[in-house]
């Protein structure tokens, strides 16, 4: 790892001010992606601004079916929250399958979303739940937030403070993890609620997470896994790599979508 300057932020304001003074700073939360990337020298920020001790960014609030999750909330906390499980079990289950138990104790929902890894799980949840990403400057719809592989609508000094969404009547996430890395080779989150049916796919898209309109329309008219049997998953838009080519992934997307619908009930 190249050397860096570590700063522990006490508040969002403090973090933004520190970022303003840095040459090429980066915010770090759990660091479960950023630190390995720095160790490989694929990233070399001049400054690391630690958000993990900003209390206002932590915690889960559930009011009826309205859910707010602080950006600094760890995957383990999302997984273990009884209150959240009552309102939206699908996101708890998703969080419980990210990485491994030790990674889940450090990694945070805000960090995962800000990084927008094309194989990360949370971006699919945000899209399928129609979540709003709340930053220190504005509120962004998930549909507008994820702008491509490792790319988001965030400005350099903008910090996600929380995410909010309405818990859907039904929802589930199903993923096919790569057997070695455990990252999703295809992961599909489906939801059915007041705002209709949403189907979001991660791990497979060559431009990161995406919604699949045809599967959404098919499931809106018939909420049953058989409804998507005839849907066309365009392999041209999907990743091909040593783990699987795009036609394989296209099939995985459909299989994961069917499993998710069946799990959602």
């Amino acid at each position: 790892m190249y050397n860096t300057n570590y700063h522990r932020a006490s508040s969002v304001k403090d973090a933004v001010a520190t970022m303003g003074k840095s040459d090429d700073g980066k915010f770090v939360s759990g660091g479960q992606t950023l630190i390995p990337t720095m160790k490989q020298r694929l990233a070399a920020p001049s400054d690391l601004i630690d958000l993990r001790h900003v209390d206002s960014m932590k915690g889960i609030a559930v009011k009826g079916n309205q859910v707010t999750i602080g950006a600094g909330t760890t995957h383990a906390e999302v997984n273990a929250s009884k209150e959240l499980r009552k309102a939206c079990p699908s996101i708890c289950d998703l969080a419980g399958h990210i990485g491994d138990p030790h990674v889940r104790n450090m990694g945070t929902i805000g960090g995962s979303i800000a990084n927008n890894d094309p194989a990360a799980d949370y971006p699919a949840a945000m899209m399928a739940l129609g979540a709003q990403i709340v930053t220190d400057k504005r509120t962004i719809d998930a549909d507008d937030f994820f702008t491509g592989m490792f790319d988001t609508a965030l400005e350099e000094d903008e910090i996600i403070t929380s995410v909010t969404f309405t818990a859907p009547a039904k929802g589930a996430y199903s993923k096919f993890p790569n057997p070695a890395s455990r990252y999703a080779m295809a992961g599909v989150f489906v939801s059915q609620g007041d705002s209709g049916v949403r189907v979001a796919v991660t791990g497979a898209g060559s431009d990161g997470v995406f919604r699949h309109g045809e599967m959404e329309a098919a499931l809106a008219s018939n909420w049953d896994s058989s409804a998507i049997a005839e849907c066309n998953i365009d392999a041209d838009d999907l990743l091909s790599d040593l783990h699987g080519d795009n036609s394989y992934r296209a099939n995985l997307v459909k299989v994961m979508a069917k499993r998710a619908v069946e799990a959602a009930g």
Partner: peptide, 29 residues
């Protein structure tokens, strides 16, 4: 492994298991 996979470096930080090869000493201050 030094790449966050193997878990040989697991320690407890404030009572929770973490991979100490994927945490800065300064983060654990």
């Amino acid at each position: 492994c030094d790449t966050s996979q193997c878990g040989a470096c697991v320690v407890h930080v404030d009572g929770k298991a973490v991979k100490s090869c994927t945490t800065l000493a300064a983060q654990a201050n």
